[in-house]
Design a protein around this nucleic acid. Structure first.
Length: 881
RNA sequence: GGGUUUGUAGCUCAGCUGGUUAGAGUACCGCGUUGACAUCGCGGGGGUCGGAGGUUCGAGUCCUCUCAAACCCACCA
């Protein structure tokens, strides 16, 4: 290998990847102009949490977006991939609180303003980490437009949206039962509660009916809440309890008199058919309470410890209280029995603490009017899910949606833009901080202490990042975006909210397509999580194998929407592919050093074949990318590069490349190698941006970067007869290799190959492919003779359709073995023959199957008949010998 | 309780709108290092497509039922 070609024998991504990203960025290739006549293609990046470190979920998500972006950019679109980060309320606040805890202090000691300063400091210090990591992955996003959900513009958008919705009556404040996380000290929305099946108990408690000898037995999974019971409910038609409806029971321990009410909500089959009602600690009971005007008595505080309403249990933690209460009830003889019972427990998605339903005054978004149009756009096809099955999940959720609790008892986030007048009690919701009360003029205003759910601002992301509420050129050019790429786990959290916010404020969908991908699971098929410790750090993979390998590996072996299991072995396979590309390129480049542009000479069969296959690959890869089938496109490229270009074409090219006698033939091969390699590198570039850029720069082509080259187009090289003929030659070569391996004829050994074709046409093809056969079936030591006559006897043979292959083995041939082999082949051929004949004798098949299919089967039958004839002749010869 | 997905070679997965002898990677066996690559080349063994039934000239590919696994949704206390 020449010294001046600076390509190492083994591809080392660490030598290559570092230099190209800064180059691309400096050249401004990622930047999208607004005043561009080209058709736009835009994607907004799902903003990762500022607290986050890149994990494989981001890696797959970003890789998909980058592939689409690079593909479209090369296709000539005005391409914008808009990046940014999310302030991630709870997560970020928790990080900084941890930090404070280490310093021996907490946010309350620090005070709100100081605390927020600390969070901003933290953000400034660590917020750039993840974007740096995305750069290492090769993400070609427009960093000049990077946004943050808490930056000025996005905050402005949040305020405007809140105020508008408030004025329309779509945001309201009310006392309702919400999910309270005693650990995070905030409310969370319904979808932030994870229901987990847990083994629990069903306690049966006996409540005495007042002025009666009777008892009413209720069943509960949470006996501690009985302290807050304000009724017992039975089904209105339950005969067992008809006479008790309207009476009262005496609540044990509390000695409170509470009514027996009738409500449809009660399931007669479950438990005893009588339910204790605790409106303050159960969402259903809360509803019942509203219907029956019941008192709501909260017995716990914000830590989920028992409060002053809990009598002697005050101050106890809720589970300790449960224990104590059960014991006391048992002592009182109130506990009838305890059954084991499995039920779903709601846990906080962040900290897995059991959520406590609590009644409190919170802000809500009224969902029904917003959900309706968000469903319609999907039903009408204005917005498409890929794969479309996710549309069903999306619609199902919106169908049954409840109002969205958006206030959070945190400090880090968008503060709710509502002030309360301390003098007249007015509620003031305005975009600009008010100086005084518009009602009474008082200056005693107090802003609502809560902040908004993080997803409230994320929901505005597709337009807030483009400058809304200003009417910007960005919005004109890039909204609605072309496609949203995200994991199936945030369809509800994020996708749905962007849709109704987009429709409400932009009067258009935020994206035309939503491409949903699966999750990256570990080798056992489990979700990767911190608690399991089974996470894999993408950066370590990049260090070890390179970003290209990681990207390609994440995309292949996977179909759209399905989860991907992470198997480290696959990294090696992909790395080997990168190395293969590298070495094929090294070979081509080495042989291109004296290359000068000029017209090609005559094309040989293999030339026409590879050019045809190349163009077919262009078509197929482009089509697969167009339908977001990234795994399929990757597979096609892998196979073309390795199994066709490397295994066959490069090997065949060697003959002419090394032939010093015929420089024009060498030039022709060089020219084809260059065209196909360059084009293939372009097709591969979206997947493996670094290695393709490196190789491309070594090629004798002009231009600054592969990433701004035009996507390959077909020129009309497709040639089905070349493909067919080449396939025949390849079959012959494989047959020869097979015989040689079986007969143990070493590759270097001198040998003669005799090919017999019964037809002139086939003979012509063989003549055409003789050089190839010689080259790939044994090297220069092999003589290939093609003939119309049947010849050798002392030979190992293979009978193909239309061609017989003979490898003469003077005296070495084990006749019995060869006869047995031929007989076996005949038997197999007969089997195939009868299968085909059966098919063609079936009247239904001939009558109903398409002509083409029938013709194909006929052709096959003819082929097999010919082959059987040849085999039989061969067998007869062998037996004579 | 409802829904979705998955079940194809030892392992991990492809197989599009039904039509060659069901593919790849990996693992395994045999052969092979003078000039792209041993992170390689050549050859080979290995599956009848979870099970049953059906539609069809024809099914891994459509329908029904069934078994198994994963996930999502759901207010049965």
């Amino acid at each position: 290998m020449s010294e001046d070609l600076k390509m190492e024998k083994v591809y080392d991504p660490s030598q290559v990847e570092g230099k190209w990203y800064p180059y691309w960025e400096e050249k401004g290739y990622f930047h999208a102009d607004v005043d561009n006549a080209k058709e736009p293609f835009s994607i907004v990046m799902p903003p990762p949490n500022v607290t986050g470190a890149l994990h494989l979920g981001h890696a797959i998500d970003s890789t998909i977006q980058d592939i689409l972006t690079r593909f479209k950019r090369m296709q000539g679109y005005n391409t914008l991939w808009l990046p940014g980060t999310d302030h991630a309320g709870i997560a970020t606040q928790a990080k900084v609180e941890e930090q404070l805890a280490k310093e021996g202090t907490n946010r309350h000691e620090l005070g709100r303003d100081k605390f927020l300063e600390r969070v901003w400091d933290w953000k400034r210090e660590y917020g750039g980490r993840i974007t740096g990591q995305l750069r290492r992955l090769g993400a070609s996003c427009d960093w000049s437009r990077e946004r943050f959900t808490m930056d000025e513009g996005c905050s402005e958008a949040v305020r405007k949206v809140f105020v508008d919705l408030y004025n329309k009556g779509l945001i309201y404040r009310g006392n309702y039962i919400v999910n309270w996380c005693p650990h995070c000290h905030t409310t969370i929305s319904d979808i932030e509660v994870e229901h987990v099946d847990r083994e629990g108990h069903l306690w049966h408690l006996r409540y005495p009916v007042k002025d009666s000898e009777e008892f009413l037995v209720v069943a509960t999974t949470r006996p501690e809440t009985m302290l807050g019971d304000t009724a017992v409910a039975v089904h209105p038609e339950d005969e067992r309890y008809q006479h008790l409806i309207g009476k009262t029971v005496l609540l044990p321990l509390m000695n409170r008199e509470i009514p027996i009410i009738a409500d449809d909500y009660v399931d007669r089959e479950f438990g005893t058919g009588a339910v204790k009602i605790t409106p303050a600690h159960d969402p259903n009971d809360f509803e019942v309470g509203l219907r029956h005007n019941l008192l709501s008595i909260s017995v716990m505080d914000r830590e989920a410890n028992m409060n002053e309403e809990a009598g002697k249990y005050q101050g106890m933690e809720r589970y300790a209280a449960r224990k104590a209460i059960v014991k006391d009830l048992e002592d009182l003889g109130v506990l009838v029995k305890v059954d084991n019972h499995q039920h779903a427990v709601g846990e906080c998605y962040r900290c897995s603490t059991v959520v406590e339903p609590m009644v409190s005054k919170q802000w809500f978004v009224k969902m029904a009017p917003l959900a309706k149009p968000a469903m319609e756009v999907v039903k009408e096809g204005l917005m498409e899910f890929v794969p479309d099955r996710f549309a069903k999940i999306y619609l199902g959720w919106l169908e049954n949606i409840r109002d969205w609790c958006i206030s959070r008892q945190l400090w880090w986030g968008h503060r709710i833009p509502v002030w309360y007048c301390e003098d007249c009690g007015a509620e003031i919701c305005v975009q600009v901080d008010p100086e005084s009360c518009p009602k009474c003029g008082s200056k005693q205003l107090k802003q609502d202490p809560d902040v908004l759910d993080t997803w409230f601002s994320s929901g505005l992301w597709p337009f807030s990042t483009m400058g809304w509420p200003e009417d910007t050129p960005e919005l004109k050019q890039f909204y609605p975006t072309s496609v949203l790429v995200t994991g199936r786990d945030i369809i509800f959290f994020w996708v749905a909210r962007m849709v109704f916010m987009g429709l409400e404020f932009m009067k258009d969908v935020p994206f035309k397509k939503v491409m949903i991908h699966g999750l990256v699971l570990d080798a056992q098929g489990r979700k990767m999580s911190k608690s399991l410790g089974n996470g894999v750090d993408p950066l370590e993979i990049i260090d070890q194998y390179g970003a290209d390998t990681l990207r390609f590996m994440l995309i292949t072996g996977n179909t759209p929407g399905n989860d991907l299991r992470f198997h480290p072995e696959r990294l090696e396979a992909t790395r080997n592919f990168a190395n293969k590309i590298w070495n094929a390129s090294r070979f081509v480049l080495f042989n291109l050093q004296d290359f000068a542009e000029g017209p090609r000479g005559d094309l040989k069969l293999e030339d026409r074949w590879i050019l045809s296959r190349y163009e077919e690959t262009i078509d197929e890869v482009t089509a697969a990318l167009d339908r977001f089938d990234l795994g399929e496109a990757a597979r096609l490229l892998y196979e073309f590069i390795w199994n066709e270009f490397c295994d066959w074409y490069i090997e065949l090219a060697k003959g002419r490349l090394y032939d010093k006698e015929h420089p024009e033939a060498r030039h022709t091969v060089q020219s084809i190698l260059l065209e196909v390699l360059e084009g293939t590198m372009k097709l591969l570039h979206p997947y493996m941006p670094f290695i393709t850029e490196e190789i491309w720069h070594n090629l004798p082509v002009t231009g600054e970067s592969i990433m701004i080259q035009a996507w390959p187009q077909v020129k009309g090289y497709q040639d089905s007869s070349a493909e067919k003929q080449m396939n025949q030659i390849m079959e012959v070569i494989k047959a020869i290799r097979n015989i040689r391996a079986e007969m143990n004829v070493q590759p270097g050994k001198k040998a003669e190959i005799i090919l017999v074709a019964p037809e002139q046409e086939t003979l012509g093809v063989l003549e055409m492919g003789k050089d190839s056969i010689r080259l790939l079936a044994g090297g220069s030591q092999v003589d290939v003779v093609a003939s119309l006559e049947v010849k050798p006897a002392q030979a190992a043979s293979a009978v193909l359709e239309g061609v017989e292959v003979y490898l003469p083995l003077r005296g070495l041939l084990d006749l019995d073995k060869e006869i047995a082999r031929v007989e076996k082949e005949i038997a197999q051929a007969f089997q195939e023959q009868s299968r085909l004949a059966g098919k063609l004798n079936n009247e239904g098949f001939v009558a109903k199957a398409p002509e083409q299919v029938v013709a194909k089967e006929r052709e096959k039958l003819e082929g097999i008949n010919g082959r059987i004839g040849a085999l039989q002749v061969r067998l007869a010869e062998l037996k004579e010998a």
